[in-house]
Design a binder for these strands. Structure first.
Lengths: 109, 109
DNA sequence: TTTCTGTATCGTAATATTACGATAAATATA
DNA sequence: TATATTTATCGTAATATTACGATACAGAAA
């Protein structure tokens, strides 16, 4: 137990859940907001911006990278991260389908 | 450790993360889709529809209820669940702000 | 009242997540 | 070459999540 039973769900449900889980943490939301706002990519400035240890930030970046939401390129000693457009678009698509399926109707209860 | 440092993030970041975390599981996505599609509310039919034990479904419903995404009313022996419109709207708003802030530009790396 | 039905809760095992210090690895600079 | 800078990884402690059997609880039906 303690293990999500992915095999009983559709790949779309699993995919959306995986992407959402990657975003469902305030630190990772903050990281993404930083990457977006400094539209040029950001590096380890994140450690200064947020109040988390360098190892923790690196771990969060790894999670975002693993699901493909961000991508990084090495620039000398530093690493430059940015949003991966295709995954971002996929997230918007899946979420749009999901959220849009609820047509705010007669709330029945 | 092992405890998210919510105090260093904005309430908006924390709120969005909390809502997303509630949704970021395939079983809870499936539950919400069932509730939405049978626009009349659904009860413990969820146990038949999904392949999870009754205790597990009840636990997932509790999580969705705790963050206010669904609401339930007792109907005799059964319980009728439906989407809570205001929380759903809040989620759409916060997510729209967040996802919309990325303007798919010159992916810099 | 007794019994059945639907749901919630308790307890628990397996696993995952979060955070961080310490350290390694890689590149730049002196 | 030696040293500093930046990032990744390892190890680990604290906590959270997922799933389920067992059981409790409440209302309906017999």
């Amino acid at each position: 137990m303690g293990l999500t039973k992915t095999e009983i769900f559709t790949s779309e449900q699993n995919q959306l859940a995986t992407l959402l889980k990657a975003i469902a943490h305030p630190a990772r939301i903050a990281i993404l907001q930083q990457i977006i706002s400094t539209n040029a990519c950001i590096c380890g400035d994140l450690v200064d911006e947020l109040g988390l240890a360098q190892a923790t930030i690196s771990q969060h970046l790894k999670e975002l990278k693993n699901v493909g939401i961000i991508q990084g390129t090495i620039e000398g000693v530093k690493v430059c991260y940015c949003i991966a457009p295709s995954t971002w678009a996929m997230l918007e698509l899946l979420l749009g389908n999901f959220l849009g399926s609820y047509k705010n109707p007669k709330s029945c209860c």
